[in-house]
Design a binder for these strands. Structure first.
Lengths: 209, 209
DNA sequence: ATTATCTATAGATCTATAGATAATGC
DNA sequence: ATTATCTATAGATCTATAGATAATGC
């Protein structure tokens, strides 16, 4: 697995590169969330990161690179949140419910960021875009694993692997749905109720078979 | 309900306005889908519509207006597709399944367009954005109605109105999911299989209660 | 001496409009 | 005479880089 290190730079000090890029990403996330990618200028990014425009271009080769770094950082954060829930010692339905709950809470916390990914992934050129989609798929895989475990534990009706896979995608997307339908959903539900109802909805298929 | 007629114009001939704007929208949709809103120039839109840049600005006041007209046209098309399915004479589960099927097929046909709305809604200024979201909600309402009918027909377990409402949102979003996860889903499922599995998944909640 | 950083700006681009011209209808 | 349309461009803006300067480490 290649890393953000793929973006070329003239700067020799590896650690400095990491540190500065983190600075840049932190500054850019805020601006992108606020004004969108296209309405944010590279000068603004540099200013918010506390460096000059010239220096910015020592650490990235284009504005697009900044967007890629931002997307990468967001996905890493989401994945971290979900992975933690995987450690839980509970079993069966309970465990799946916990994972969903943790995931939905991450979506809630990172609402603006997830929205940003939906809006700007297409802006990335093909190789970067592919990586962002791989990240998305990796998160979906976590749900596949959790569902398979549940099926193996035999407490539940048998479901085809194709159905399992689809439900994993559904879980991923129903978490995102909270972010991109927030304008409507948040007036009707708290994140708690939303999570409860959706969990019920998702588990129904397991109980019914 | 106000109409696209809210966008001011100096042109007196009402019909001409409608016709030219249709021309502009048709041209713009293709370009936006292809290159995105921000990478499309007003000159390109004018050229694709077969009019001069000067004339373009007689029919819209800004590039953003064009985007709004495009979003409006897309939603109208989606709504038309779903409304047709509502006329069906079947009853109960069967009817819901038909509506879902018709809706998913519309999403399939208009994949690029729906994606465009996800990506560019935020670009719109607040009043236009609000209208686009209202359109989205109107489509969701169609599903609410269909679900309520099903519940009233008494063949099924009782579900709270809050759950009904949420499931309506889920149906809307699971149709969209086919468009924004196409890069993965279309490798694994045909739209037919996708529709079949998702319908099964959604209906499970009704059978289980 | 080498590496990191900054200032200043070239060069490209794009939206929106002013002013001129062509088409239409009385 | 009025309405629709076109040409030409003002004015604003933005990315990316060249060349100069400051900081660092031997």
């Amino acid at each position: 697995m290649k890393n953000p290190g793929d973006i070329p730079t003239q700067i020799k000090d590896r650690e400095l590169v990491d540190q500065r890029r983190m600075q840049i990403v932190d500054a850019a996330v805020g601006l992108f969330v606020d004004k969108g990618f296209h309405r944010t200028t590279t000068r603004e990014i540099a200013a918010a990161a506390g460096i000059s425009i010239g220096l910015l271009y020592e650490y990235v080769t284009s504005k697009e690179d900044v967007l890629y770094l931002v997307c990468e950082a967001i996905h890493k954060e989401v994945e971290k949140g979900v992975s933690e829930a995987l450690q839980s010692k509970t079993q069966g339905y309970q465990k799946l419910a916990e994972i969903i709950r943790e995931y939905f809470l991450v979506c809630h916390r990172m609402s603006d960021h997830i929205l940003l990914i939906y809006q700007e992934t297409r802006t990335l050129s093909s190789p970067w875009r592919r990586r962002v989609l791989e990240n998305e798929l990796r998160i979906t895989e976590i749900f596949v694993k959790a569902l398979e475990e549940l099926v193996k534990s035999n407490q539940i009706s048998n479901l085809s692997p194709r159905m399992i896979n689809l439900i994993a995608h559904n879980i991923a997307v129903l978490g995102h749905m909270w972010t991109f339908r927030r304008w409507s959903l948040s007036h009707q539900y708290s994140i708690e109720e939303y999570t409860k109802l959706q969990t019920e909805f998702i588990l129904a298929k397991f109980k019914a078979g």
